[in-house]
């Protein structure tokens, strides 16, 4: 069951990468990258279940924080032309 879930999440990452390559505007690409890191986080958690290890979970936690900061920084740059207020 975990292997099936990993395959489905991999298919979701392929779809998000399709929008990342094809997206007509830059916001589409940022949204696709945002979805891609959330999907990678889900895949890491599933991999931790499959391999019976807690190491991957802390990687997923760091990935969540870094992805949020990156998305907010790019969105602020697109909106205001600079990142810091």
């Amino acid at each position: 069951m975990i292997a099936i879930a990993m395959f489905i999440t991999g298919a979701a990452m392929v779809l998000a990468a399709l929008r990342l390559l094809r997206g007509p505007t830059i916001e589409d690409r940022v949204l696709a990258l945002d979805t891609l890191y959330v999907d990678a986080l889900a895949l890491l958690v599933l991999m931790g279940i499959a391999l019976e290890s807690r190491v991957y979970f802390e990687t997923a936690l760091v990935m969540a924080v870094l992805g949020f900061v990156a998305t907010v920084a790019v969105a602020a740059y697109l909106r205001r032309g600079r990142i810091m207020p």
Binding site: M1, A12, A32
Partner: peptide, 17 residues
Amino acid sequence: LAVLGAVFVLLGSLGIV
């Protein structure tokens, strides 16, 4: 639960495309 969550993640990516 893992398959259900993976299906919802796939639905989100399908909506993006």
